[in-house]
């Protein structure tokens, strides 16, 4: 999984998002130890302070626990991980709806369309 950054937003926010995705995908499984700030920064090719800020946010979100000195681990609280997953899913659906509305679909049309697409699969 590669680290990618867009131009328009602060890098630390993008780092938090991508770390979250990695946890949800199981790249960093629940309860496992996260790499150190320096290791993560080197992997992503970013400044360690920026990575540190992203990890602080990850802690605030409840996804990472522990301290900088003792090392951070991914939370074992499944409820927190599920909540984060739902949050991401909600964002994805909102984006999807927004695009479909731009294409002229009403909400109910959009729902019907999605159902139809799923049936075909």
């Amino acid at each position: 999984m590669e680290w990618r950054f867009t131009e328009d937003r602060p890098i630390w926010q993008q780092l938090t998002e991508q770390l979250t995705v990695r946890i949800l995908k199981g790249v960093y499984p629940s309860g496992s130890r996260l790499p150190t700030v320096r290791e993560l920064a080197a992997q992503a090719g970013v400044n360690p302070n920026t990575m540190q800020r992203a990890l602080v946010q990850l802690e605030a979100d409840g996804l990472a626990v522990g301290s900088r000195t003792a090392g951070r681990t991914v939370t074992e609280d499944e409820a927190v991980i599920q909540a984060a997953r739902r949050e991401r899913a909600r964002d994805a659906v909102a984006l999807c709806l927004q695009i479909l509305e731009e294409l002229g679909y009403t909400k109910s049309d959009a729902l019907a369309f999605v159902k139809e697409e799923l049936r075909d699969e």
Binding site: E7, D8, R9, P10, I11, W12, T50, R53
Partner: peptide, 15 residues
Amino acid sequence: TVDAIREREGKSVDA
């Protein structure tokens, strides 16, 4: 800071 510039300007430092 780079992040402050990005936040304020809505674009990269490079841009």
